[in-house]
Design a binder for these strands. Structure first.
Lengths: 329, 329
DNA sequence: ATGAAAGCGCTAACAA
DNA sequence: TTGTTAGCGCTTTCAT
């Protein structure tokens, strides 16, 4: 291993000068800088990040804690976060809390131990507890979900509005008995509110509702239940793509035709939504913007820890496809 | 921040003793150990991993370099690797080389700079160059793809056999003009070999072949081309799920019916494969085994760097679905 | 079984 | 503008 001292010797300067060159600090003559650069190149020197971190008490690593990496929405965002972060010179630790409060806390602590510069997280826990336990003075950005009572930078979409829009689209297209399956997370609640509002505004009876976890099997179970009620719903509104997978499995088994016998609408425009027959009408979340903003905010917060916290609300985009075709009245 | 010294003071011992307790070293009386534990608990002490790493010259972090995080196969594996690694007490840096040699080298260097304990990678570069440049004496595990001339632990599936099996299945089911789309990576080559062998063994003419990159758009372009030839292929065999997405888009646009007018077979049982109509016949790669083995091998290698390198070949599993239904002769 | 002290590789005061 | 030096928090000889 070649150390900073070796470079200093080779260039005939002190380690301090090498350090200054390394961090682009002023007060180095062009000539000295060049000699140092030459020495670095010649020796193939690469600074030891660990030593640097220990001394400077800061790292260029970010923690990315995702509530479920199986969910394509989150993998999408993770990929983009990783991309943006590396462009800023930061590397990212990926963690999967798996919708488990305990795991979330564990990872939060791990990240703290690793001295990450900041944490980007889609929180699993609904209360600020996990964050409080850490006495977090560390930059944190929440995305996808907010936590009541936790005043940190947050990026979400207008879940209530989007859900309202999506439900209204179903209503406008002639669906009458729209059942809803929502997830037991903050986004799920918000989407449920928008959904119920739209149903109410249309003057329909209170809809059938199921609240469950964002898992394929849960969607399957919920759909089985819904399809067995009578009168059967003529459309299913789901707040999560994993749940929709399960719903579709149940529908396929039942032999019901989409959209003629049952309409389908969902959140998240994951890849397969446009591949199935018929393709699925969705609210697309701007994953690229979410990721970009998340990294942006964390960078801002790292630079300026005391600025007032930002709450960014992005717009979901309704994408109409075959699964919600107009019904004959 | 509470330091080891604070704990030592609180417990009335030296930092060395605290360190011994921390690393479960012998030569500490039960009584001292208890006092230390109490002090740790009381002060909420958590060892500084960076300091520890600097001193001990080792970390408990792994680098996971993925050739394309957009590909569900890789996200699947990543998730599982992350899971297994954390169970072993290791955290993982996720990097996306994006099928780009330069990016791969960049990340390899980054990981080296970070002093990771090992690297798990699905290599993008086909030659050992990137690894050679680093003078890697670091534990490395290759997965999904092998690199000629690089003798390190490797986990792949029996691509040639699996492809042969999948092609033979098409042949057995009465498909006659099977076109193949393969990717320009080591797995793609191997799958192509198995495919061509099966075609040849069946006594068919040389099939139409397209070699391209593992991207949705590429699949779309390739399919457009294939669908315009005459006679049109009666089945398409693809080596990659992203490519298949593109192929399906093209087929949907053309109005062709699967499997009556065109059969479809692919590698990787990603989630939507069983959701589309008809569901897709695939070779399933055992992503869980791959991930588990990858972490296993890297752990072994970390413990015993000099052991002979292992080449694990796992079996792909043929899953027959509607997209390759028997054709009437 | 325990403690004193050196030092991992680097950065940042401070002195020159 | 540059060099000297202390020390980040920890582990690990080496003495005891």
């Amino acid at each position: 291993m070649v150390r900073i001292k070796d470079v200093a010797n080779e260039a005939g300067v002190s380690t301090a000068t090498v350090s200054r060159v390394l961090s682009n600090k002023p007060y180095v003559t062009a000539e000295a800088r060049e000699r140092v650069m030459a020495a670095i190149k010649k020796l193939g020197y690469r600074p030891n990040q660990i030593a640097r971190s220990l001394r400077s008490q800061q790292t260029t690593a970010l923690g990315l804690i995702v509530s479920d990496v199986c969910n394509p929405f989150f993998t999408d965002v993770s990929r983009l976060v990783e991309d943006c972060a590396y462009k800023e010179g930061y590397s990212v630790f990926l963690c999967n809390s798996d919708e488990d409060d305990k795991k979330e806390l564990f990872y939060l602590q791990q990240m703290l131990d690793k001295n990450v510069a900041g944490i980007i997280i889609s929180p699993t826990q609904k209360t600020p507890e996990n964050f409080a336990l850490l006495g977090i003075d560390l930059p944190v950005v929440l995305y996808d979900r907010s936590v009541k009572g936790l005043d940190v930078d947050t990026i979400i979409i207008d879940n209530e509005d989007s859900a309202y829009q999506l439900a209204k689209h179903l209503i406008d297209n002639g669906y009458k008995r729209i059942a809803g399956i929502f997830c037991d997370v903050s986004t799920g609640y918000e989407r449920q509110v928008g959904f119920e509002k739209a149903i109410k505004d249309a003057g329909y009876d209170a809809p059938q509702l199921i609240v469950t976890q964002p898992r394929i099997e849960k969607g399957y179970i919920a759909a089985k239940k819904l399809l067995n009620t009578s009168p059967r719903p003529d459309a299913v509104f789901t707040s999560d793509s994993l749940v929709l997978s399960g719903v579709m499995q149940a529908i396929n088994e039942s032999g019901l035709k989409v959209p003629d016998e049952i309409g389908l609408a969902c959140f998240d425009d994951v890849a397969w939504m446009s591949l199935v027959t018929p393709p699925i009408t969705v609210i697309r979340q701007p994953t690229d913007q979410i990721a970009r903003m998340a990294v942006d905010l964390i960078m801002q917060r790292i630079e300026n820890p005391s600025q007032a916290s930002l709450h960014v609300v992005l717009k979901g985009q309704l994408i109409v496809r075959g699964s919600t075709q107009t019904r004959p009245a």
